[in-house]
Design a binder for these strands. Structure first.
Length: 467
DNA sequence: ATGTCC
């Protein structure tokens, strides 16, 4: 018995050495070469049957491990070509975002997808990407800011009644911005979401509860904002008469809590798919019917409710300060996954920077710090998997915006529209975004416009270079 | 998006 015989059997690497050891033992026991080779073939055919013990146990264990590795690789193989998917506003979308969506549509778990007109490059799935998978949830298909969402409160106040200085003071007093920011102990907010039993269901959630409790009611950094503005209804809707109203619009997420949930489960998903094509590394998934998949689903949905609770508290504080009750409210999550029927199949629909837009469903699509945002009503377009854009979408990345935009041009843009800005980095300048009117024009078959919000007093986090 | 660690 020599190595050549074993290689001929198809044995590889460590298995050859283990087979040689076993074969030597069998030769000592008096077996002929052909008899030993027959035994080795039997072990190869069904290694599981030899795991329990005996001379072939170590070889059987190695062969089982090799088979498991091959299975994992096979299960993670990308399709040669992406499944076809529709694109809205192709002329507004950079090639990089298309490439990312192409990779997503090559995943073995992908079944359908769509790209919204605000699409731009992100980690894993592009921002503005909608992806339907079968029995799989992709942490980076939801994004780092799980549950990132929008909320509008229409107030029983005339738009002109709130002066810029007063509005500015209210925002400074009642909102908190920035990475790591939390409320002081005496100002700590409370909300029913903090009293859910869900926090006790996972060690990770138990661990993150304290952070979540201190940060609830705050806003983050980047493109998050809280603003006062004028809400204009051309026709009666939302239970309101046509007209102009003072309104509060906010964009906020699940803060450090959601970010850590995303990070934790992304690590687990990547670990589960070591053989995944490097191009799809950030699209590693968790089987929904696995323990990890179920844990992510639970944590993701909690982060979604937590993010909406942040909005609730922000709006409640501002309304209380103005001594009013909102007349109408609209809210929607745009970074989340949902169980949804797609072509008769129950799939997981990821929206990473995409607004749910089922028939009749209300949503909010903001423009920029100085451009209008829109209340929309979904048309339930099946090709778009019942989705629309989540905003205007970036035309300049953060660094490109800092490099190319001039502060005075941004200030002029704000001044021309009468916008008062607190904080706000140049990377969030209106010029860094696509024109919201164009983006809306590309999705006339996804949503109807209900009303228009024009920002007047805007608070954002302090950028690396403020406007 | 987040204070670079679940």
């Amino acid at each position: 018995m020599n190595g050549k015989h074993l290689v001929k059997l198809g044995l590889e690497k460590k298995a050859i050495a283990l087979a040689q050891t076993a074969a030597a033992a069998r030769e000592t026991a008096g077996l002929a070469r052909d008899e030993i080779l027959a035994e080795l073939r039997a072990v190869q055919a069904d290694p599981a049957a030899y795991l329990a013990g005996g001379v072939y146990a170590d070889l059987a264990a190695e062969l089982s491990a090799q088979q498991a590795a091959r299975d994992a690789l096979k299960g993670a193989e990308l399709r040669a070509a992406p499944l076809p998917y529709p694109v809205w506003g192709q002329d507004l979308i950079e090639p990089g975002a298309r490439s990312q969506m192409d990779v997503a549509m090559r995943l073995p778990v992908s079944r359908a997808g769509a790209l919204m007109p605000d699409a731009h490059v992100g980690y894993g799935l592009p921002i503005g990407g909608v992806l339907a998978t079968e029995n799989a949830v992709i942490p980076y298909g939801v994004g780092v800011d799980i549950g990132c969402s929008m909320m509008l409160s229409v107030l029983p106040v005339a738009p002109g009644a709130l002066h810029a200085e007063d509005g500015k003071a209210l925002l400074l007093k009642h909102t908190r911005f920035g990475a790591g920011v939390a409320f002081d102990k005496r100002d700590r907010q409370d909300h029913e979401v903090l009293h859910e039993g869900t926090w006790q269901d996972q060690p990770l959630l138990r661990h993150l509860f304290e952070k979540a409790a201190t940060q609830i009611g705050t806003s983050g950094s980047g493109n998050h904002f809280v603003e006062f503005g004028t809400f204009t209804l051309a026709d009666a809707d939302l239970g309101l008469e046509a007209g102009e109203y003072l309104a509060v619009l906010s964009h906020s997420g699940s803060r450090g809590f959601g970010a850590q949930v995303a990070g934790h489960f992304t690590t687990l998903a990547e670990r589960r798919h070591p053989g995944l094509d490097p191009a799809a590394k950030k699209l590693a998934w968790l089987p929904l019917d696995s323990e990890d998949g179920q844990a992510y689903w639970q944590a993701m949905n909690l982060a979604g409710r937590y993010a909406l609770a942040n909005h609730d508290l922000i709006h409640a504080r501002l309304a209380r300060a103005l001594n009013v009750q909102p007349l109408a409210q609209v809210r929607n999550s745009h970074n989340l996954a949902w169980e949804q029927e797609v072509g008769g199949q129950n799939l997981i629909v990821h929206r990473k920077g995409a607004t749910p837009a089922e028939a009749g469903q209300l949503g909010l699509i903001p423009g920029s710090m100085a451009d209008p945002g829109y209340v929309v009503r979904g048309l339930g377009n099946r090709d778009a998997l019942g989705s629309a854009s989540h905003g205007a979408g970036r035309v300049l990345g953060r660094k490109a915006a800092e490099r190319t935009l001039a502060k005075k041009d941004v200030q002029a843009y704000l001044a021309a529209r009468g916008v008062t800005l607190i904080g706000g980095g140049i990377d969030e300048a209106p010029q860094a975004y696509k024109r919201i009117e164009e983006v809306l024009a590309r999705q006339g078959d996804l949503v109807d416009v209900v009303g228009r919000f024009t920002p007047q007093i805007v608070r954002m986090d302090t950028g690396s270079e403020d406007v």
